[in-house]
Amino acid sequence: MTISEQHITNRRQFLQGAIALGALGSLTPQAAQALTAQDDGLLMESLPANWWALEFDRPQGGRLKLADFRGKPLLVNFWASWCPPCIKEMPDLVRFQRNWSKKGGQVLGLAIDSPTPARQFLSKNPVNFDVGLAGMGGSELMSSLGNLSGGLPFSVMIGPQGHLIRRKMGATHLEELQSWAQTMPR
């Protein structure tokens, strides 16, 4: 596929996701969650070949390198400041990080957002985990991890051996994340 064909495909997927999000906006929050939440169960999939080489700007400045997280249990949460389910799950991600970090785990947030709104959100709602600014390019990254619809929030858990262990489209909650951590292969 050429770069222009890939661009058209990416744009089409983005527009389809935007239309779907618009349609979901007319549903109650419970109905929208029921339609969008999908936990793929326990996986043992390889990560994209370039995963550990990726780097992102940090909201507070500097660079975030995925290679720094290699060999640790890692929960990656894709979110945006304009996404109500993303905002709703943030306190549970903060609580999960507080407990999981004692066991060597790490939560990483990747904002699928413009830098200014992400920074403004984080200044009003600080988190205790690392955040990278993935921007709209993060949609392609989500796709490479199995999120073909481009919906948010989207979370993946990566085991210390570097395999994709869990994947979920839709908001998570503390109890679910704790069960994921307990079932992670060593």
Rank of each mutant, 00 (worst) to 15 (best):
G61S: 01
M184D: 05
F78E: 00
G62F: 05
F129P: 03
L141T: 01
M136W: 11
A80V: 04
S81V: 08
L133V: 09
A171E: 12
L148Q: 14
T2W: 07
C86Q: 10
V94Y: 01
W52P: 03
G71D: 12
V156R: 02
T9V: 01
Q161R: 11
G135V: 11
M90G: 01
S144A: 13
T9P: 01
P126C: 06
L110Q: 07
S114G: 11
V94W: 05
A171C: 03
L152R: 10
M136F: 14
A80H: 03
A31W: 00
G132H: 05
P115E: 10
E5L: 13
F154V: 06
P91F: 15
I165L: 06
P117L: 01
P29M: 13
E5I: 12
D57Y: 02
V76N: 01
S114D: 15
Q120S: 11
G61P: 03
L75M: 13
P160H: 11
R166D: 09
L177Y: 08
F121D: 03
M44P: 00
K102P: 02
K168Q: 15
G159H: 02
N128C: 11
G41V: 06
S123P: 01
R95M: 06
I112F: 07
L174W: 06
L27P: 06
L110H: 12
K102S: 13
M142F: 08
N147K: 06
P59F: 09
Q161T: 13
D40A: 13
L21I: 04
A171N: 04
W100V: 05
